[in-house]
């Protein structure tokens, strides 16, 4: 009885699935899915390497400082960095005094101590990076209806994040003629910019890194080409997303080596205890 019931229930589900499959297969066989421009022209991020990659990876502090300079002089006009505090910059190798000076260069929201009204004041090391726009509506209004996302977690919030940021910054180009020939309706709308590394190919952000020397690196640094600046700011954003990366990898090495040793000991002990006991 239980078996008959079970087979009936089984038939109910399998027939329903067969029905869904049959209709789906028919549609798929008779009406091939339309190709889309996104599907065909979207590209995976370029291959790029950073000092922080790999099991022994460490931040290149010099590069992080350059990347911070790019963020400060270019990105920060539109993009917030809300999870990072100025005090965190000491990890990039800046001294306490330098951090104070950097913080003081930013205006952060404050309160007038006599009237209680909102005003702004120079930042302190304990402050977080200020948001360039008061809220999303203001951000939208100033940026062609697109909200510039916060950058603090960007390299963790996208697949293959660091390479994605680097590719996006260096990937702006004219829309390929091939694309327009195949998908005449897919012309990049005015106000948007073609970039094959962006999920739907057209993004609102104008190319932020436009030419060599846009940011002036101090002596002893590589030439500030677009490629170099993109790489540097990507490295900086790896740090903002995961400031504990170095500590994580170093701790991991010690932990894993110890566990390897302990596991081998445990295995030898197991062999010992079971010695002579067939199983």
């Amino acid at each position: 009885m239980a078996r008959i019931l079970s087979i009936l229930v089984g038939l109910f589900f399998t027939v329903a699935l067969a029905w869904s499959f049959g209709l789906g297969f028919y549609t798929w066989a008779t009406e091939p899915a339309a190709e889309t421009a996104e599907h065909e022209f979207h590209r995976h991020p370029k291959e790029v390497h950073f000092a922080s990659d790999g099991a022994f990876g460490k931040f290149d502090k010099q590069q992080l400082q350059r990347g911070f300079q790019v963020y400060k002089e270019v990105c920060s006009a539109c993009h917030s960095l809300s999870h990072v505090a100025f005090r965190d910059l000491e990890q990039l190798g800046y001294s306490e005094g330098q951090v104070k000076a950097i913080a003081a260069g930013f205006q952060v929201p404050g309160t007038d101590q006599t009237t209680g009204e909102a005003n702004s004041r120079p930042g302190m090391p304990t402050d977080y990076f200020p948001k360039p726009f008061a809220n999303d509506i203001a951000a939208r209004a100033a940026n062609n209806n697109a909200v510039p996302p916060d950058l603090s977690l960007m390299t963790k919030a996208r697949h293959d994040g660091p390479a994605y940021v680097y590719s996006l910054l260096t990937g702006y180009q004219a829309q390929p003629a091939e694309l327009l020939k195949k998908f005449p309706d897919a012309k990049t709308p005015s106000g948007l910019h073609y970039n094959p590394y962006f999920a739907n190919l057209n993004l609102a952000m104008a190319p932020p890194l436009t030419g060599e020397g846009q940011v002036e690196y101090g002596a002893g640094n590589p030439r500030p080409t677009v490629d170099q600046m993109a790489k540097d700011v990507s490295a900086f954003l790896i740090w903002t997303a995961e400031p504990k990366l170095e500590k994580r990898k170093q701790t991991g090495l010690a932990v894993c080596l110890f566990l390897l040793f302990a596991t081998v000991l445990g295995y030898m002990s197991y062999r010992n205890i079971w010695a002579g006991k067939k199983h």
Partner: peptide
Amino acid sequence: IAKDGWAVGAFAL
């Protein structure tokens, strides 16, 4: 205990 013990080590690794 010995067998589970070393398995825990391998798992932890």
